[in-house]
Simulated assay, not measured.
Amino acid sequence: MTRHRGRSPSRKRASSPVNPTLALTAGDPAGIGPEIAVKCLADLEILSTCRLVVVGDADQLHRTASALRISLPQSLQIWDGRSALEGAGPYVLDMGAPAMEVPPGAPSAVSGQAAMTAIKKAVSLAWERKVAGIVTGPISKKALFLAGIGSTGHTEILARLTDSPQVGMMFVTPAFKVVVLSHHVSLRSALELITRDRLAGLIRFAGTEYRRIFREEPRIGVAGLNPHAGEGSLFGEEEEKEIAPAIEKCREEGVDVWGPYPPDTIFVRATRKEFNLVVALYHDQATIPVKASAFGKSAGITLGLPFLRTTVDHGTAFDIAGRGTADPSSLKAAVTLAVQLTSS
């Protein structure tokens, strides 16, 4: 796997004549990624805020637009990824058709490889500062596994491609932001990963990244694990043995962090602005409140990369792929978030 080594200059903002240039990967070609990418390409409000470069199969994107009876902008250009961009765009960086036909609705080795190829190209563009950031469409971990890439997600892939020593996932909703201690592991494994050292490391890391990305001081609330955050160890000892000591250690270091708070109320408190960042202890502890309160309006950010990456709050939705009913709202939210963060 190609990796980009050494410190990249791209933590600095990539220059743009007016609006930031963003690479948008179309995601797994068997899922809804191409459809929602086309819907972004046709959205004049989105195109007025950035120079959008969709990385994917140009023929599939045009076929998708035709099937949906969507008129793509006359200004749409094919870009080779090497020459200087001209005009306001939008653009398609054509990765060519997959080696075999990819029917909608099912993950395959071919679709996984196509998605991975687009990710690598987008990373190269960001690394070379040809784009200010990347926005990723949904991919399938099953398809990546079938392609021999491993059953990992974007976060792990981007960490490997950039040799980033520590990365993390943050979800951004209109009401709150949340980071998560563990990602794509079983719940049983996630529980074993809740240790005071790992949690303290995440609190420090998330606070530093929050300050860098949003340019304000973090005030962090940490969720408990057990009902009522253990209620004095009546319902579990993780809070007393692991979580509270991690919080206390970070407070001694000057971090503005509080908790642990019952996981069923901490997001209410964050919505009321008691905190501007929540630390969740496992994947679904973060994503359930995100999707219940802001599905289609939220987006993800990968922390720790040498460039900005935002993403959708949903998966490939194979069950509706090819039907023309996919909602592009979250992808538009991810583009909008990327524009805000690269323009500030």
Rank of each mutant, 00 (worst) to 15 (best):
A333Y: 09
P9Y: 00
S151C: 13
M100T: 15
H228D: 12
A84G: 11
E248M: 14
R204F: 10
V339W: 03
I320Q: 04
V102D: 03
S15C: 13
P29M: 01
L22D: 03
P73F: 11
R272P: 00
G254P: 07
D284C: 07
V185A: 11
A132G: 15
A84L: 15
A246P: 08
E35I: 02
R69G: 12
G137M: 05
C40Y: 04
T287Q: 15
T316N: 04
F176I: 05
D43A: 06
I194R: 04
A200T: 10
L305Y: 00
A37E: 01
L187V: 14
P107M: 10
S330L: 09
V290T: 07
A229C: 12
L125Q: 13
D80R: 15
A23N: 06
T287G: 04
T25K: 01
R13T: 07
G224V: 05
T310D: 01
L308T: 03
E35D: 04
A246V: 09
V172A: 14
G6V: 02
E238K: 02
R51C: 04
G105D: 13
G105T: 13
A294W: 06
P245S: 14
L337T: 03
S111E: 04
E239W: 08
L281K: 01
N276V: 05
A115I: 07
Y282M: 05
L47Q: 05
P260M: 10
L85E: 14
P263C: 11
A294E: 04
Q166E: 11
Q166N: 08
G137L: 06
E242C: 11
K121Q: 15
L93V: 02
A122Y: 06
L61N: 01
P289S: 01
N276P: 00
A14Y: 11
G236V: 05
F275S: 04
L331F: 03
H154V: 10
S71K: 15
D59G: 10
L331V: 06
A14E: 07
